[in-house]
Design a protein around this nucleic acid. Structure first.
Lengths: 112, 112
DNA sequence: ATGATAGTTCTATTGTTTTAGAACAAAATT
DNA sequence: AATTTTGTTCTAAAACAATAGAACTATCAT
């Protein structure tokens, strides 16, 4: 069983979060995780379909930034958003970004 | 009298905001503007001193992203944060980023 | 007028990022 | 056992970004 590197929440740097989310592919990944919860790599949908190795790269950037958690389960890689930890570390940050990105849940609340 | 390009607030894209603020020099510029209000280019302090042309570049990135406004006044360039407009466009975004960056005003409120 | 001040533009270097093809590895299915 | 599925690692190309030196422009002060 393989283990994947994840930074501890204390090590998470704001700059890295912002950088990771400044890419449309990665922002979309985080949006989908917010909407769907746990997902495998293959379940993500991109506007333009990207190569597998490209997605592997983007997951690594998100993971290194502390945004997502990856758990290997059989041959699948289960990805989740580190929502609670991030909310504790940077209160309101993720919510306002996802809301600004026009995500269902949060955006709906703010619009009416 | 020279005019400088500024995007209209409607054109401002979240990704560009996040990208612009993912650089420590630029994040620091925005922090200082939040603390001090209007500033000239020469008034900004960087951890490591940067060349003038480097700073010109960073101001342009911030301006193109819609974060700052530059007004030419004599031989000085007066820079301000587009706070109100940004707050209207992306509610809570700038506040949570500046708070996460450990900025005085906002951070102080959240800490106690 | 001369000089100093404030900042830009041009150009170049160095390093980083996005992208993906090809080969690979491990688990699941037949 | 052979094949399919799921995703990684390696490698490389092309695009982009951070940095700053040098020359420049415009304003202000003497």
């Amino acid at each position: 069983m393989k283990t994947v590197f994840h930074p501890s929440i204390k090590e998470v740097r704001l700059e890295n979060i912002l950088y990771a989310l400044s890419d449309p592919v990665r922002l979309s990944v985080v949006q989908q995780l917010e909407e769907q919860g746990e997902m495998t790599c293959g379940q993500f949908k991109c506007a333009e379909q990207k190569g597998k190795s490209t997605m592997t790269h983007h997951f690594k950037v998100l993971r290194d930034a502390g945004l997502i958690h990856t758990q290997v389960e059989g041959r699948e890689h289960l990805t989740t958003l580190r929502r609670k930890e991030l909310d504790a570390r940077f209160p309101g940050l993720l919510s306002s970004i996802l809301s600004a990105a026009g995500i269902l849940k949060t955006a709906a609340k703010l619009r009416r």
